[in-house]
């Protein structure tokens, strides 16, 4: 599983990464977590507001920090 966190390294993007790591830890699953800071790549997903979260190519959320439970549901559903 590949999880991409879209953002430029600001507070909400950093928080999103922390939440993803916590969700992985609690669910006992493993994934490649990648921070994407390149605007062209972010825009290629159609994401116009950050932070964004992409799981295996699917945009799950944009502009908001997801909850740990949300992320857990998304990754378990993969």
């Amino acid at each position: 599983m590949k999880i991409e966190i879209l953002g430029t390294g600001c507070a909400k993007c950093v928080k999103t990464k922390e939440i993803v790591e916590k969700a992985l830890q609690e669910s006992g699953l493993q994934a490649d977590v990648v921070k994407v800071e390149d605007y062209e790549t972010i825009l290629s997903y159609g994401v116009m507001i950050t932070p964004g979260l992409v799981i295996d190519g699917e945009v799950m959320i944009a502009g908001r920090i997801p909850s740990v439970d949300n992320v857990k549901n998304w990754i378990i559903g993969q």
Binding site: T8, C10, A11, K12, C13, E40, L43, M48, T50, P51
Partner: peptide
């Protein structure tokens, strides 16, 4: 292209 991206956070970048 940075002016086209909108960040949702409260840091010192361009976001609101």
């Amino acid at each position: 292209m940075t002016e086209n991206m909108k960040c949702g956070c409260e840091c010192e970048c361009e976001c609101e």
